[in-house]
Design a protein around this nucleic acid. Sequence first.
RNA 1: GGCGCGUUCGUCUAGCGGCCUAGGACGCUGCCCUCUCAAGGCAGAGAUCACGGGUUCAAAUCCCGUACGCGCCA
Length: 483
Amino acid sequence: MKVRTRFAPSPTGFLHIGGARTTLYSWLFARRHDGQFVLRIEDTDEVRSTDRSVTAILDSIKWLGLDWDEGPIDEKSDKGPYAPYYQMKRVDIYRKHLQQLVAAGKAYKCYCTKEELDEMRFLAQLEKRPPRYEGRCRRLTDSQRAAFEAAGKKFSYRFMMPTEGATIVDDRIRGKVSFENSLQQDLVIWKTTDGPTYNFCCVIDDHLMEITHVIRGDEHLSNTPSQIQMYEALGWTPPIFAHLSMILGPDGSKLSKRHGATSVLEFRDQGYLPRTMRNYLALLGWSTPESQQLFTDEDLIAKFDLAGCQKSPATFDTVKLQWMNGEYIRQTPVDELVTLAEPFLEKAGLKGLPGPDFKKTVALEREKFKLLSEIPSLVEFFYKPVVFTPKAMNKVLEVPGAKQVLLDLAEALKDFAPFEDKALEARIRKFCEEKVLKVGQVFHPLRAAVTGRTEGPTLFLMLEIMGRDMVVSRLKDAAAKLG
RNA sequence: GGCGCGUUCGUCUAGCGGCCUAGGACGCUGCCCUCUCAAGGCAGAGAUCACGGGUUCAAAUCCCGUACGCGCCA
């Protein structure tokens, strides 16, 4: 049997990090088993679903570097052998199956109003009973039913759960989980407002789309027994389920906005690489016995399995994410890195400025970047006027003799050639000897004068890239500033 | 409230009855390298395996409770 997995987001917001991980795992599993990965948009919540959200979700998945074999092309159209993949376009299908269930006596009309349900729930809580629907309309007599119909009462449809026995969810991550049927309530599968309900659509689509493995978040585990019963009522075999643990914020509660970035696109905008996200998310709740940390995509696909998934929730750790991003930035060829950095350079206003090729300056500082967004601030002094940090002024420049060093250096370098790394190092070391100065007494003021900072790239290669004119004039400017 | 799930260094985790004096990774500390900052190398601190009972010659690993956290049901 061909493996088919799916990710089925509700387009009511952005793709958050938990959804991204679910997508990744589903994708990896499909790729690993040479199967197909399907995207389905669960837009039955008409009020909250938006096109904008669909776009954001598709963009997020694409940015992550994941692809889907079937599903939406954009917020309007879709393609694939099981189309449509937008649930709102499938309502007729759901209605047909509803009728099938009604005919089989597996679904019934519920005339209870919201007020009545609220009251029942309230009473149940007062009496310390579980606040679940007790199946009142399930036991309606024919005359009661006729009376409601005659009165034109609105109704929903509920699925009739078995009242005896237990439903076993044989979960690939958690093992066999047993639920007492008598404790489950009859779920609404068709709303009073004339529309199918999430749990119902999900069952029908997963079956019709021939999904073999449903990989989804922990929060769906409790609904799974009801869904399994629906499969059976419809005469279908349920797929294999795998419920992923949640992702928590640093304080141990469910990861949310107040913990910082949660939307995939925010991570993009902060300068994380897609491959970092793939690798980090893969490891957040999954591991190999060797505890391997860094993976290529091929590696991930070859090694990913549901058995390696953690049952307990995982805390999202930005520090480790940043380490990994730095790791991948260092692995990225410079040309590619510059291309990736472009939006950030542009935003920082460095893009059109005269100055050295970004390839040179970015390469020079590459091992320091943890985020693409940090790149501009680390190379900006090549393009913008020098801004002296307080530390550079106090600790390095405003010390006795520093001004003279700068002036002497300017003089020594103004005609020096070739203005190149090794030659410069030899010349400046010789300069130290001539003036009987320790290298630190020369190197540090020099760096501070041309960059305005005490921290920066390796000195001589940086001077080469700056070029003689810039170096000499900055030395003079800094000396002048020292008065 | 009911049902379900979970609990190994600060964090992600390895572990599936003896190899565990609990391994790795991030972070942290120190040292080395060195023109600064990084990167890199080396070393180190850090977990009575939530707690309490069992089972067993032997338990982080199996069983039962308790606590705490979380999810679903509204």
